[in-house]
Each structure stands twice: as structure tokens, then as C-alpha cells.
Design a protein around this nucleic acid. Structure first.
Lengths: 178, 178
DNA sequence: ATTTAATATTTCATTTCTGAATTATTCATA
DNA sequence: TATGAATAATTCAGAAATGAAATATTAAAT
């Protein structure tokens, strides 16, 4: 790994997380056995995710979408036969089934997806992007890629693989307890 | 870095993320220039954070708390003089000010914090844990540490530092655009 | 010293999300 | 082929979170 990414932020201006770290340090002094490093990592993940969410939403709002509705659309776009069920969508997006129903109602309203009963299994529902939905998704891409590049563009291929691999491992461990 | 953490999950059973990766791969085939690796990383962060949130909440619910209220308490516990303002709490937890007000109302109700006007700056409010709040926080620790150990316990010190450093860098880049 | 701008918190209407229960269908197995 | 268990989706009431506006106070600028 290159040495560019230490434990401290590369900017001089203290970012929002420095204050959190200070509090974690104080807590470590107060609580014997406090797993400081693990706590820092856990909080860091939250902060990164929240910021990512905000920044992406800024882009999507201009198109009448948000991170959740957009993700739902992308999961349909990326389905092998372009068709997906609500339960698949739920596990792919991490949203609860009840919320998926609401989100699909909304996307349906906007004419971005169609929703039909499955013929093979009549418990199921089949969701599919409309032409309009596909066009919207494709239209938003450039802006979002730019956004991603600003967040992750500084990393080498090796660093990307490491970061991905480590998080993949964390997720697998968490899934064991789910 | 050790070789234990590759890009694929260490378990044989495909976890919830494998399906997402498959969809990302399909999307890459459909969209020229699609930044597959960055997208995967972004989605991975979301999934990890969601799972972490769920698992931690399982523990906290038993104590009448959730991740947000708990974090708020911990940020007070870790304040230099044990006192914090709502705006500090907002930036430390990532919750919007309006939500902080609601959360503090709730914690106040439960007798876990006290809330008083600041004497130096009368715009401000000073939040502080009560004895009861401190005791609760300390009581929950062992369970949460166990939780953290299950998620992050498999990593070496070096891996923890790498993961933390990389995420720290990501956050710093995101904060530039905030 | 006013006036203006900035900061801190709260209020309120609205949106988003969740848990639990409900309905419908399919699967497993006796 | 009946019966109970499992799965899929939805409904609904309530909880949690947000955005925008309102209120109060302090800091900055003229």
C-alpha cells in the first residue's frame, strides 16, 4: 500500500471526524478495555456512508430521485432479464419489504417502472423498468460517475482492491450473525 | 496486507452482496465507461453500514436505546468536560439539528441527560449525562464490545490501520465537497 | 451605536421508514 | 390430496428523519 493514506486527514482543516476521534480518546481513558480502534472504524463507516448519501442525493434530487429510489432502479437495470421481484429488491437495496412497496408505488406513479403479477409464481410480482425509466437512469450516469470519481478517484487499483476486500470480509462476518 | 481478504466472500454460502455484484456486472456490460469498482465500493459501504446498524440495534433495543440515541449519549460521555451542545452533537453524530432536538427530548424524558441554557452564550444549550445516563452507557459496553469483536475481530493491527486510513481519506475528500 | 450578517436551537409540516399483522400462494410431507 | 409450514407482498399505524421557516442571541461591519 502506498503511504499516502495515514490515519490522519490529509487536509489541515480538521474535518467533522476529528472531533469524534477526540471523544473516542476521552472515552478510552474513562473505560478500561474500550476497543478504541474498532469503535473508530465503526463510526467512520457511518460517517462515510452519511456523507456519501448526502452528496449523491444532491445530484439525484435534480432528477426527481433520491439514493433509495435510484438504487432500486439500478437493481432492475442490472437484472439479467431486466426483471426483478420486490423481495430481491429488498435484499439488494437493504430496504425493508414494506418500504419497497412504497418506493415502487412512487416509481410506478412516475412512470419509471411497470409492475405485473408473475405467471410462474402467483405470490410474486415482477418489476421492470419502462423505456422512460431506462432513459432516466442512463441520463443520470455521467453526473454520478463524476461524483464517484471525486470520492474514490484518488486510489490505486491495489488500494481499491484492499478496501473492497476488507469491507467484503466485514460484511461476510456480519451476515453470519444476521 | 495478508492474503486472507480477497475480493470474494470467505464463506461458500453466497451472502447478500453477491447478488448486488452480479447486477453491477450486468450493468457494466450495458453501459460503456461504467466505473464498476467505484460503484461496488460505494454499495458495499452502504450494506456494511446497514448491517452494522441492525446488529447494534438488536443489542441496544434491550436497553431501550437505538444506535442514534446511544451515539448521542456516547458523544456526551466522551466530551472533555462531559458537556456538549446540540450543534456539536449534530456534527458528531451526523444527525440534522432538528433531529437532535427530538432525540434529546426523548433522552431527557428517560432521565438520561440534563439540558440547560448556557451561561456564556445564551443562544446555546448545554447537554450533560445524568448519573443514570452514565450508568446505562457503562452497562451496555460489554455487549457492544462483543458485537464489535465479532465484526472486526478478525483483522490484524495493520489491516485495521489500512482500513481506517483509507476510509479517513475518503471522508476527507467527501468533506471537501460538503 | 446601529445595522447587518452569522450562529444556535427549535417548531412544524411533510416525507421516509419500520414492525407487526394480514392475505395469498406455494412447498413439504404425511 | 389434505394439512401445516414457509415464502411473497401488502396494509396500516406509529416512529424517525428531514427541510424550511421562526426565534433568539452574538459577532462583524460600517
Amino acid at each position: 500500500m502506498s503511504d499516502r493514506h495515514g490515519e490522519n486527514p490529509p487536509e489541515d482543516r480538521p474535518d467533522s471526524f476529528s472531533e469524534v476521534e477526540r471523544r473516542i480518546e476521552v472515552t478510552r481513558r474513562r473505560l478500561r478495555g474500550y476497543p478504541q480502534d474498532q469503535v473508530r472504524l465503526a463510526r467512520l463507516i457511518i460517517h462515510v456512508q452519511k456523507r456519501q448519501n448526502e452528496l449523491t442525493n444532491q445530484v439525484l434530487r435534480r432528477h426527481g430521485l433520491n439514493y433509495v429510489t435510484y438504487t432500486a432502479l439500478m437493481m432492475m437495470y442490472g437484472a439479467e432479464d431486466q426483471a426483478t421481484t420486490p423481495s430481491e429488491l429488498s435484499s439488494a437495496t437493504g430496504e425493508k419489504p414494506a418500504n419497497i412497496t412504497r418506493i415502487c408505488d412512487e416509481l410506478l406513479e412516475q412512470g419509471l417502472i411497470e409492475r405485473n403479477p408473475s405467471t410462474e409464481d402467483r405470490r410474486r410480482v415482477v418489476l421492470r423498468l419502462t423505456r422512460r425509466g431506462e432513459r432516466l437512469v442512463e441520463q443520470v450516469q455521467p453526473e454520478l460517475w463524476q461524483r464517484l470519481e471525486r470520492s474514490f478517484g484518488g486510489f490505486s487499483g491495489s488500494e481499491m482492491r484492499q478496501l473492497t476486500g476488507l469491507l467484503r470480509t466485514v460484511l461476510a462476518r456480519m451476515d453470519q450473525d444476521a
